[in-house]
Every structure is written in structure tokens, then in C-alpha cells.
């Protein structure tokens, strides 16, 4: 799949900063409908900043973010969510004292939708992550790391997103759990046609999963291409695979 005429998400010359520290220095990125796109890069490259700036914090200093052709650069977070862009933020950030069911409900609350649609999304989430069903009444904070990640993704899915943003879903997880979660993402993409942007430090899994990938260094995109194609490049292997997480 390649970027179609009008990509679902188009980022053009995006700049964003925290005070004087410029974290994004003119980023271009496209995601076509139905694609999985991986954004890889070392710690501190600006990957999370890119994801969060889609939700308006930090706000773009220059450039544009277009969703389905519409400029959403200046929209507040709750309106971005209403366009059905959903996010599983870095570090999972589930609500620890709330039950699994309440966490999922929180994902559904911010976007409009009928009861039947909600029921369908919940059914989908529980089919993807059957472990969550057994733990519906359990408090989020008592889940294992892998289950928390499943909950974070499930919570994002409750809004029936058109675009799902995942920030480091494999962070701190055992390889087996990581594989399960990546399998779920692939299933969502293949079976439901969900468009996904996945941010990872660990390039191996992400690039294998993705149709296309971007590499970010110091707030700039330095490389892009097909997932497997990027994975073959020696400079990528050196920087993001064998050596693991070198800065």
C-alpha cells in the first residue's frame, strides 16, 4: 500500500517546542487509510511529541496537520478525539483506581456513539484481549504490565477510531506479550481495516508489522520507506536493532 491521493493523516512541516527546546523541526509524514505506519527513533527523538501534537499539546508552532483533508492543527484535544482519532499514550496511563470496565467506558465517553455501537466495540476489544474480560471488575492498577497495555489499547478502541495512535506499546513488556499485542494490532488492521500509527524505539517488531516506516532523529525525519525495506538497511540495523536502544 502506498500513500493515496489524499492520505488519512498528513503532517506538513510540523514544528513544535517546549519553551526554547525545539522538539520537532519540520516533520512531514503521511498515513494512508488502511495502513500501518511505524515511526521509529531513539529516546528523545521527538516521537511522542509528534503524537501528542496531533492532540494539540504541545501546539504546533509552524506547519499543518490534516486529517481526511481537514486542517486540525489548532483543534483542542477533545475535538480531535471526536473526529475519531484515538491514542494509547506512552506509559499506558490507565486509570489505576478505576476498574477495567470503567477504564474501557472512559474510552467510549469522549466520543458520540449509540449504545449498539458501544456494545460492538466492547465485544471487539474483548475478542482481541480475552484476558480483559476475566478482569472486568479488577482495578486497573492491579493488572500486569501486559494487561495494562491491552487495556490501554482496548480503551482507545472503545471510541471506534478511524486512526489509532500507539506510543511504544511494547515498552517494558516480555517478548511473548509483545508478540501477542502486535498480533492484535495486525488483526485490527487486516480484519477491521484500521489505520495505525505505531511509535517504537525497538524497530524490529514495529517495522515487521508496518507497511511503511519513518525514522526520526532529533526532531527530523531522516529516512522513510517500506517496513521490510527499512529493516534491511545496514544503518537501521546498526542503530536500532543489534545495539538495541542506543541514543
Amino acid at each position: 500500500m502506498s500513500a493515496a491521493a489524499t492520505p488519512l493523516l498528513a503532517i506538513r512541516g510540523l514544528r513544535a517546542a517546549y519553551g526554547k527546546i525545539e522538539a520537532l523541526k519540520g516533520v512531514d509524514l503521511d498515513i494512508a487509510t488502511g495502513e500501518i505506519v511505524a515511526l521509529i527513533g531513539a529516546n528523545g527523538a521527538g516521537k511522542s511529541t509528534l503524537m501528542m501534537s496531533i492532540f494539540g499539546r504541545p501546539r504546533a508552532r509552524a506547519g499543518h496537520i490534516l486529517f481526511g483533508g481537514r486542517d486540525i492543527t489548532a483543534l483542542p484535544a477533545h475535538e480531535v478525539a471526536r473526529l475519531r482519532i484515538a491514542q494509547s499514550p506512552e506509559g499506558r496511563r490507565i486509570f489505576p483506581r478505576m476498574s477495567v470496565a470503567e477504564n474501557l467506558q472512559m474510552g467510549a465517553d469522549a466520543t458520540p456513539g449509540s449504545a449498539a455501537e458501544r456494545a460492538m466495540s466492547l465485544e471487539r476489544v474483548l475478542k482481541l484481549f480475552p484476558r480483559l474480560e476475566e478482569r472486568m471488575a479488577q482495578r486497573g492498577g492491579t493488572l500486569s504490565g501486559g494487561e495494562q497495555q491491552m487495556l490501554a489499547i482496548g480503551r482507545a478502541l472503545m471510541s471506534r477510531p478511524r486512526l489509532l495512535l500507539l506510543d511504544e506499546p511494547s515498552l517494558g513488556l516480555a517478548p511473548l506479550i509483545t508478540r501477542q499485542i502486535f498480533a492484535a494490532i495486525r488483526a485490527l488492521n487486516r480484519e477491521d481495516g484500521l489505520t495505525v500509527l505505531i511509535v517504537e524505539q525497538n524497530a524490529n517488531h514495529a517495522l515487521r508489522l508496518a507497511h511503511r516506516g519513518y525514522v526520526m532523529v532529533n526532531g527530523l525525519i531522516t529516512m522513510s520507506g517500506g517496513g521490510m525495506e527499512l529493516l534491511q538497511r545496514p544503518e537501521i540495523r546498526a542503530a536500532y536493532l543489534e545495539g538495541g536502544r542506543r541514543a
Binding site: M52, F55, R57, P76, A77, H78, E79, V80, A81, R82, A86, Q87, S88, P89, R93, I94, F95, P96, R97, M98, E102, M106, G107, D109, A110, T111, R155, A156, S159
Partner: peptide, 16 residues
């Protein structure tokens, strides 16, 4: 309650 737990997560979910 969600805001008490984690304001950043709320924003990511699109809570106003």
C-alpha cells in the same frame, strides 16, 4: 474521577 487519576490520560482520550 479519571481526571483525579491521570489528567494526561484524560486529555489523550479526548476528555474536555
Amino acid at each position: 474521577e479519571a481526571m483525579r487519576e491521570d489528567e494526561v490520560a484524560c486529555r489523550a482520550l479526548g476528555i474536555n
